[in-house]
């Protein structure tokens, strides 16, 4: 396949376009973008009386299920019991208990049900592993299919002459915005 055909495959590719018209395009673009994002990121820097403790409490509480409201975490729930649970978590953290110890305490009282994310052991490994297994198997499948199709094309390839291929590509490009039904 000639290089002429390759170039034509690009949609944006048009004759006479100059590269590097704005040498700093990339940098300017990145700066504009970040200028927009910074106002959002900035407030995280400033804090309140005891930010470390509060963030730790929030982190642990967001992994616990609010038992009176079905689908919210203890951190998010507005219910009274969740508020008491947050206070308890805060106390336990202040006593120097680790995240694991606090979780274990709640599991011993409410059962595994109280953990919003199933612990990664035993049967639960299925729910953690299957999605990635599915993606890997799927990716392998996509690769196999794509390769088979490529091979099929290469067998049929020699018959196409470059001028014809060029015309096909131009047609394809025109079909880029086909009419409605």
């Amino acid at each position: 396949m000639g290089s002429q055909v390759r170039g034509a495959g690009s949609l944006a590719g048009a004759p006479g376009r100059r590269h590097g018209r704005w040498p700093g395009f990339a940098l300017v673009w990145a700066l504009v973008w970040i200028g927009l994002v910074i106002p959002g990121v900035a407030p995280a820097a400033s804090g309140s009386p005891n930010p470390d403790l509060e963030d730790q409490v929030r982190e642990i509480a967001s992994g616990l299920r609010c038992v009176v409201c079905q689908n919210l975490s203890v951190a998010d729930s507005p219910s009274d019991l969740a508020k008491e649970m947050r206070n308890l978590v805060r106390e336990l953290v202040q006593q120097g208990k680790s995240r694991e110890e606090i979780q274990a305490y709640f599991v011993s009282r409410y059962g595994e049900f109280v953990l919003l994310s199933p612990p990664k052991r035993g049967f639960n490994l299925l729910v953690w592993g299957l999605p990635f297994l599915a993606i890997v198997v799927g990716a392998w499948g996509v690769y196999l299919v794509a390769r088979r199709w490529t091979l099929r094309r290469e067998e049929a390839e020699p018959a196409v002459d470059p001028a014809y291929a060029e015309r096909v590509r131009r047609d394809l490009r025109e079909r880029e915005g086909p009419a409605g039904p």
């Binding site: 967001s62 689908n71 595994e112 049900f113 919003l116 994310s117 199933p118 049967f123 953690w128």
Partner: peptide, 19 residues
Amino acid sequence: FPLLAEAIRGTKISVGTPY
């Protein structure tokens, strides 16, 4: 998955936001 866990292990579990 909570349904599956209950059917097979007989335990109630939660699968929520962190997962």
